[in-house]
Design a protein around this nucleic acid. Structure first.
Length: 574
RNA sequence: UGGGGGAUAGUUCAACGGUAGAACUGCGGACUCUGACUCCGUCAAUCUAGGUUCGAAUCCUAGUCCCCCAGCCA
């Protein structure tokens, strides 16, 4: 029976979600190298979390869950100049929203400042660290280049006592910012530049969100991260590729300091997405420069932005599962993310009718002043979702793009003389077109077939299109925000001049939308499908006077795609 | 011309010396009271050159190309 998988010829179904990190974890567990896996998600609170962080979050918390371990949330708050409480709060909120729980294991690198300081003194006592008086420029100049070795600092051979004295005075705040640093005595000629006497501590007379003004010196990432991992008993410390050549340093501290455990660092590729920039630097500038409304602007790739836009956490988790984990740099097609968003939304979103760009329709053979109620299901694949009533009357709105006076061959919506179905209502036929002085269509005159009530013709005749609509008198107004990619190139330039690639049409405001009344029941961030249009959710900008909806994402539109293809063909064909 | 990594369909990931497979995308079709969903079919890849082996994406050798590192950022 053990060979069932092979017999069925379906080996791929065996291990969903396997990757090289999980392989390592599994091997360590199997070999008894670790008793319980302990991971951590270590954000620096200097900005909001984005979908790239979601990869790390899902990996770290996911591995802990799958292998019966635990995952810590640890703020890597070693640089008070950049960090703020607001970010700490936002990060906690976002991780929770994504569906993960760190239990009691909330930590801060700043909790370990005293211990880290002690280890720094240990290093000094062992002759493995020294206080350097060189200026920042001198240090840079003496570091050498990629091809030339660096030069030893003239302060490299100070005595232990002198180093200890100076370092303590650094801590005491006796020197101005930048006056001195503590450096590891490593190897100024190493090919790995991170080993050319890396800075361990710098003087930063700045208040820290958590430790206030008690510290005048702060540890560097390299000196803080591994030891923090060791303090917490982290077994697998997962980070991104750019830290690969920091690993020798990481291991060196763990080996040379009296730390309580020996964590190991593993590196994976960070997430990149087409039409998206995932760098905190860029995201920060987008916010500070007013290019977007804030960190949670629905166009932002931040967790907060995606949430406000209506993307469910489940979709993000599923997306991360699908893209896998590897060491090769890659750029994931944003279309893959869109697919997972639609998939998640389709399952749960209740259906409503909303006309985004209304075109008035008068049903000439429907009595004036009359209306009737029709039944509409809330979800076509889920009877349990129930149904609601919608009002039909003489004056309706349909979508402007659902009518064409001179239709091209593959257009089978409404045009003069054609018959279509109004969803859940009647078949209608267009009998006349009213235009304004500019020649634009402002109103349609139609007739309906009373025999088709509910949407089916007793004589069995078919229509090629079913359209959404609302009753003019019974519908309610709303503002709808349509979002397009923030950047107009699949590979926007990096931090230097991202502004040049900003899409000026990333936000389209539709102020005249009309919704069926049931759509107003929507709750903020709860997805709803406006049939034939896409998935939407109520935005928190909604007021008593004005409903505001965000379009999370449009439905797939093969008709629009065909049209675009034909246009392209004509251009190319000449 | 230092050090560290990486190359498999268009994209992202599998295959761990034994039939190169999936998802997304593309293309074609079925179904449909959402041109949605769903379903079916289909195109499509091992960076190059040698070598080892009965057998190589996988091991060896030599190349090529791409990414990261010269913060008192993380």
């Amino acid at each position: 029976m053990a060979s069932d998988d092979k017999a069925s010829g379906n080996p791929t179904a065996a291990e969903p979600g396997r990757d090289f990190i999980r392989d390592i974890v599994k091997a360590d567990l199997d070999a008894g190298r670790v008793a319980q896996v302990v991971t951590r998600f270590p954000p620096e609170p200097n900005g909001y979390l984005h979908i790239g962080h979601a990869k790390s979050i899902c990996l770290n918390f996911g591995i802990a869950e799958e292998f019966g371990g635990r995952c810590h949330l640890r703020f890597d708050d070693t640089n008070p100049v950049k960090e703020e409480q607001e970010y700490i709060d936002a990060i906690e909120r976002d991780v929770r929203w994504l569906g993960f729980d760190w239990g009691q294991h909330l930590y801060y690198a700043s909790d370990y400042f005293e211990r880290l300081y002690g280890w720094a003194e240990d290093l000094i006592r062992k002759g493995q660290a020294y206080v350097d008086d060189q200026s920042q420029d001198e240090i840079r100049a003496n570091r050498g280049t990629l091809t030339e070795p660096g030069k030893n600092s003239p302060f490299r051979d100070r005595t232990v006592d002198e180093n200890l004295d100076l370092f303590r005075r650094m801590r005491a705040g006796e020197f101005p910012n930048g006056a001195r640093v503590l450096r590891a005595k490593a190897d100024m000629s190493s090919g790995n530049i991170n080993l050319r006497d890396p800075v361990l501590y710098r003087i930063l007379n700045a208040p820290h969100p958590r430790t206030g003004t008690t510290w005048k010196i702060y540890p560097s990432y390299d000196f803080a991260h591994g030891q923090s991992d060791a303090i917490e008993g982290i077994t697998h410390s997962i980070c991104t590729l750019e830290f690969e050549d920091h690993r020798p340093l990481y291991d060196w501290f763990i080996a040379n300091l009296d730390v309580p455990s020996t964590p190991h660092q593993y590196e994976m590729a960070r997430l990149n997405l087409t039409y998206t920039l995932l760098s905190k630097r860029v995201l920060t500038e987008l916010v500070r420069g007013g290019h977007v409304g804030g960190w949670d602007d629905p166009r932002m790739p931040t967790i907060a932005g995606l949430r406000r836009r209506g993307v469910p956490a489940e979709a993000i988790r599923d997306f991360i599962k699908r893209i896998g984990v590897a060491k090769a740099n890659s750029v994931v097609d944003a279309g893959m993310f869109e697919f997972t968003v639609r998939e998640a939304l389709n399952k749960t979103a209740l259906r409503r009718m909303a006309v985004l760009r209304p075109l008035k329709v008068v049903i000439e053979n429907y009595p004036e002043g009359q209306s009737e109620e029709l039944d509409a299901v809330n979800h076509p694949d889920d009877a349990a979702a129930g149904s609601r009533k919608i009002k039909f009357s003489r004056e309706l709105y349909i979508e402007q793009e659902d009518f064409m006076e001179v239709p091209p061959k593959k257009f089978f919506r409404l045009s003069p003389g054609t018959e279509v179905r109004l969803r859940y209502a009647y078949f209608i036929k267009c009998t006349g077109v009213v235009k304004n002085a500019a020649g634009e269509v402002t109103e349609l005159r139609c007739t309906y077939d009373p025999a088709t009530k509910g949407g089916n013709a007793p004589d069995g005749r078919k229509v090629k299109a079913t359209m959404h609509w609302v009753s003019a008198a019974h519908s309610i107004p709303a503002e709808v925000r349509i979002y397009n990619p923030l950047f107009n190139r699949p590979d926007p330039s990096g931090a230097e001049n991202f502004a040049a690639d900003l899409n000026p049409n990333s936000l389209e405001l539709l102020t005249g939308a009309r919704l069926e009344p049931a759509a107003a029941d929507a709750k903020i961030e709860t997805p709803v499908q406006f049939e034939r249009q896409g998935y939407f959710c109520l935005d928190r900008d909604t007021t008593a006077e004005k409903l505001v909806f965000n379009r999370t994402i449009g439905l797939r539109d093969s008709f629009a795609k065909d049209v675009a293809k034909d246009v392209a063909k004509e251009k190319a064909g000449g």
